[in-house]
Amino acid sequence: MSTPAARRNAAWLMVVAAFAGLWLVERGFDSVEPPRPSAAEAFTGGPASHRGGPATRSPAELPPAGALSASEPVRIRIPSIRVDAPVMRLGLGPDHGLEAPPPGNTNVAGWYKDGTPPGVRGTAVMAGHVDDARGPAVFYALGALKKGSRIEVTRKDGSTAVFDVDAVEVYDNDAFPDAKVYGPATRPELRLITCGGSFTKASGYQANVVAFAHLTAAVPQPQPRPL
């Protein structure tokens, strides 16, 4: 007999699987594909390189930070790939799949409103379009992230959760590791997902790019100045 926690986890996996599928594009570019992560950025690619600068710090230098209290994300910034976008809450549609952002809004990331908020202990998941018929979208360059790249998530309470990338990997659509990507975590972790890999007009992108990160710092909400 399954436990309530197990049933909730199973439901979450199904919701996120539907969420990822909603980002597949119907049309792409004939000559330009999104960046693909190199083998060096995968978990099996060895230790992170020291590339210098605060946006490319080695994860080994940054131990996990303590978990934050729950607060939903409102903005995401990834300086190394020039992402600076609002985050919208996404619920479930009539078909029980996750709703998509409004058509034509390519500079927005989505977060499942009933999922783990970034900065809270567990696995938070965010996703975004890679492109549309008009050009690159918010997570087009996700495959260019390096180990140690910084991700900043501003939250509704005014605080900012700072994550450092542990690895960036690409998975074929028919071999997506649900447990690895969506499974529970004992520390605050973040997954960013977009489409990637080869593209065909008949079936779209053939893979998903996933960035794995963990919380390394928190910038508290601004305090009001005394009168």
Rank of each mutant, 00 (worst) to 15 (best):
P103N: 01
G104P: 02
N105Q: 14
T106L: 11
T106S: 07
T106W: 01
N107D: 09
N107L: 12
N107A: 10
V108W: 09
V108S: 01
A109Y: 02
G110F: 00
G110T: 02
W111F: 03
Y112I: 06
Y112L: 12
Y112M: 05
K113V: 14
K113G: 02
K113R: 14
K113C: 04
D114L: 10
D114F: 06
P117L: 08
P117Y: 00
G119I: 14
G119V: 10
V120C: 03
R121F: 03
T123S: 13
T123F: 05
V125S: 06
V125P: 04
M126N: 07
M126S: 03
A127N: 13
H129D: 03
V130E: 01
V130Q: 00
V130P: 02
V130K: 03
D131F: 01
A133N: 08
R134W: 08
P136W: 00
A137P: 05
V138H: 00
V138S: 01
V138F: 01
F139D: 02
F139S: 02
Y140M: 10
Y140D: 11
A141M: 04
A141L: 07
G143Y: 09
A144I: 03
K147G: 06
K147M: 02
G148N: 06
R150T: 11
R150K: 15
I151W: 06
E152A: 15
E152H: 04
E152M: 02
V153Q: 09
V153R: 10
T154Q: 09
T154A: 13
R155S: 04
R155V: 03
R155W: 12
K156T: 12
K156W: 03
D157H: 10
G158D: 07
G158I: 07
S159R: 14
S159E: 04
S159M: 11
A161L: 08
A161H: 00
V162G: 14
V162T: 12
V162N: 13
F163M: 08
F163H: 14
F163E: 12
D164A: 11
D166Q: 07
D166R: 07
D166V: 13
A167M: 04
A167G: 10
A167F: 02
A167S: 14
V170R: 15
V170N: 13
Y171C: 00
Y171T: 02
D172F: 13
D172I: 09
N173C: 04
N173A: 15
N173L: 15
D174H: 12
D174V: 14
A175M: 10
A175P: 03
A175H: 11
A175C: 10
F176T: 05
F176V: 05
P177Y: 02
P177R: 13
D178A: 15
D178Q: 15
A179S: 14
A179G: 09
V181D: 13
V181F: 01
G183E: 08
P184D: 11
P184W: 09
P184E: 07
P184V: 11
A185G: 09
T186Q: 15
T186V: 11
T186F: 07
T186I: 10
R187S: 13
E189K: 12
E189L: 13
E189D: 05
L190Y: 03
L190G: 01
R191I: 15
R191E: 07
L192T: 14
I193S: 10
I193E: 10
I193K: 08
I193M: 12
G196V: 02
G196A: 00
G196H: 05
G197K: 06
